[in-house]
Simulated assay, not measured.
Amino acid sequence: MSKAVRYERFGGPEVLEVREIPEPHAAPDGVRVRVAAAGLNPMDWQITTQPDMAARFGITLPAGFGSDFAGVVDEVGPEATGFAVGDRVYGAAIGRSVAEFVLVKTPAADLWHTPEGIADEVAGTLPVASLTAAAAPVLIGGAAGGVGIFAVQLAKRAGARVLGTASEGTFDFLRGLGAEPVAYGPGLADRVRDLAPEGITAAADLFGREAAETALKLGVAPERISVVADGPAPPPGVRKTGAVEAEPGSMERIADAVHSGEITVPIAATFPVDRIHEAVTTQAERHVHGKIVITL
């Protein structure tokens, strides 16, 4: 038997249970990963509360939980390619990452070798959030969140000046990442004009639609504005984006940047899997500075 977080009805953190399930084994063309850490994303708990969103990802009840993971390959099917027993890896498995074991088919577009020097707790936060940030173009809404921390650093790395919306309690944190913080809420357009009287050229809204609507008010072309795909409908002409929109090779480039120290991954808190309710509640409150990680 093995452990996995499961739920049988939609709802808040209370629907999540740590269950003993039959131990899974690698398919002939797949590998099994013994999970050490799983980073949480807002989409994870949104899927558990929104049946329509779960359906968009092909998730039906009963279901597993989580998207990102890192660990070690401990089984390899006879037809599998690219991985060997003992390889440290990280990847994405939507709806099933918070479990003792994750199965992945090969060749795998969503499983990567973990660079030496990157801890599992860091690698297990990368796939969904960093690829979503890589796909988003420089006003960043929700800059202190799990995707925002990557979006800010990727934009700075590309040479952009970054204005990030957040609560005032996160301003010092954002400055440490290289962003110029601006408080969200009524009057955002005026505050952005004060900071950047020359105007902004692009925007990525990672939480809600306030930053996208503000960018439109400030004259940014809709095609230069993006919003995350798992939120409300965007304003007309504004594109939805997500991890699947990232350019080929983005994950490898991001991992290399993390390994070299060009990008940092702030871990706000780690929780053992038996404290899954507390972890998801903390994530859902959106007051954390960085990533929430589950350890197994």
Results as ranks from 00 to 15, higher is better:
202 A>P: 09
133 A>I: 02
113 H>G: 07
287 H>A: 13
65 F>S: 02
267 I>Y: 09
104 V>I: 12
175 R>P: 07
14 E>N: 05
100 E>A: 14
62 P>T: 06
243 A>N: 06
96 R>C: 12
148 G>E: 02
167 S>V: 11
271 F>T: 07
203 A>M: 09
225 I>W: 02
21 I>E: 15
85 V>M: 12
282 T>I: 05
208 G>A: 13
247 E>L: 08
49 T>H: 09
73 V>H: 04
15 V>H: 01
42 P>R: 02
13 P>Y: 06
75 E>F: 07
238 V>A: 00
201 T>Q: 14
153 Q>G: 00
295 T>M: 13
53 M>K: 09
72 V>P: 05
246 A>I: 00
18 V>C: 06
82 G>Q: 10
122 V>H: 02
3 K>T: 08
63 A>W: 09
91 G>H: 09
153 Q>A: 02
57 F>H: 07
243 A>P: 03
275 R>I: 06
37 A>P: 05
244 V>S: 13
150 F>E: 01
264 T>V: 15
47 I>D: 00
51 P>K: 03
126 L>V: 15
187 G>T: 11
100 E>R: 10
246 A>M: 00
83 F>R: 05
274 D>P: 05
275 R>V: 08
134 A>L: 00
192 V>T: 11
59 I>Y: 03
98 V>C: 13
190 D>C: 10
47 I>Q: 01
189 A>S: 15
241 T>Q: 02
46 Q>I: 08
28 P>N: 11
47 I>N: 02
84 A>V: 14
15 V>K: 03
272 P>I: 14
156 K>D: 00
71 G>P: 08
170 T>I: 01
261 G>Y: 08
1 M>H: 11
143 A>T: 05
244 V>N: 08
249 G>M: 01
281 T>W: 10
226 S>Q: 13
93 A>C: 14
129 A>E: 00
75 E>M: 08
216 L>R: 05
124 G>V: 08
8 E>Y: 13
14 E>L: 10
200 I>Y: 11
284 A>G: 09
86 G>Q: 13
149 I>E: 01
82 G>R: 11
272 P>M: 14
80 A>W: 06
22 P>K: 13
60 T>V: 15
252 E>G: 07
144 A>C: 08
177 L>H: 03
4 A>S: 14
279 A>K: 05
56 R>D: 03
132 T>P: 01
60 T>N: 11
5 V>L: 06
53 M>N: 01
82 G>I: 10
195 L>G: 10
225 I>R: 03
147 V>A: 02
218 L>K: 10
3 K>G: 05
158 A>G: 11
186 P>A: 15
50 Q>F: 04
43 M>V: 15
155 A>K: 05
98 V>D: 04
228 V>K: 00
286 R>M: 12
114 T>D: 04
59 I>E: 04
284 A>I: 04
196 A>I: 11
257 A>P: 03
147 V>C: 01
97 S>Y: 08
219 G>I: 10
286 R>N: 12
232 P>Q: 07
